[in-house]
Write a protein that binds this DNA or RNA. Structure first.
Lengths: 185, 185
DNA sequence: TAAGTCATGTAAAAAGTTACATGATTCT
DNA sequence: AGAATCATGTAACTTTTTACATGACTTA
């Protein structure tokens, strides 16, 4: 949230939307988490809000980052990673593939292949748009453009790898006669 | 847990250890989650335990999967993926790179590069061991070996991509021309 | 003798999700 | 007329983490 507010002042509603649309591929949160957290950040003096009255829309609270918030953000960026537990349901399913009919399981991985190929296509479009919009700035490591581009590159790499894995796995599952008895270890 | 118990009967302690060592790279859980969950699975008739008395070690409860548990596992494997929110702190940090000194941030990504290059090396060792140990079975999609191998391939692909991204990003931040040698394969 | 492994649990707290709640405006 | 968007919150619930609790045996 500080990372988003450091770029633009935003309402809780806009923060929620950006989490879905802009940074959603590496960090997600619901509005029910965001509103209380904004209040907490404000309590710690990291952000402040001003009420913006609107005529044709409900009024909103626009939050801005404060200098203390910028300090906290910078410290967090350079600080150590907090390792969080990995939980990848697709790979977990793959671990138990031997219990089911390969042909039936292939569908799951074909579906994921499609889904992630589509995601990859979208990222490529954003990449094109970024290159045309940001120009030289994309290579400037001190710019927001570069930071956004770096995350996008990670997204693209991740999706390429995932699509390839799904394709390989689905191919293996489809390319074998179904119903062979599992062999004991 | 059903996926592990479908392969071997295990105590809560052994389940915990396997979650750390065998499947830890795509699914983790602590013992404080595992023990109550085993009791719940037993309550639903999916697993059962027998008490194994030991002389030089504390007694243990060895859990085995029941036919109903195998059915539940198979249904889950072929069933739809439950999308969980993505949360990748490293990429989130990258998004705010523009707020900090590039040289300082480079250290973080060099460290991650090292860590994941090491992880990759370990996976490659396991891969070699699997190929020598399982032989033909590795290609049999109905075998446990193939299922394990499929997850390992995903781990290897994931780490390759991550190492390359960290290397590229650290290189950019350090101001050097594009990164070192590509990760092989 | 200190640390580590084996072994099983519970309790408190934190984090996160889903559902509840409202209401005007705009688009189809 | 119905659905979607804008806008902000709370409450109940589930999930997960961290810490508490114990104790014998083994290895350095």
């Amino acid at each position: 949230m500080l990372g988003l507010l450091a770029r633009h002042s935003l309402s809780g509603y806009d923060l929620t939307r950006r989490m879905r649309e802009q940074v959603g591929f590496f960090w997600e949160a619901r509005h029910s988490q965001i509103y209380p957290e904004l209040a907490r950040l404000e309590g710690r003096g990291l952000v402040a809000h001003e009420l913006v009255e609107q005529r044709e829309r409900p009024d909103k609270k626009v939050y801005s980052i404060l200098p203390a918030g910028e300090d906290a953000l910078r410290e967090w960026v350079c600080g150590p990673l907090r390792e969080r537990p990995v939980r990848d349901e697709l790979v977990l399913k793959a671990y138990s593939l031997w219990t089911v009919d390969p042909a039936a399981a292939a569908g799951l991985f074909r579906e994921q292949e499609r889904r992630h190929a589509e995601q990859l296509r979208e990222y490529r479009e954003i990449e094109e748009w970024m290159k045309q919009t940001a120009g030289e700035e994309l290579a400037n490591v001190n710019s927001r453009w570069f930071a956004s581009y770096a995350t996008l590159r990670r997204g693209i790499g991740y999706e390429i790898e995932l699509v390839e894995w799904c394709r390989w796995l689905a191919g293996e599952l489809e390319g074998s006669p179904a119903g062979g008895a599992p062999v004991d270890e």
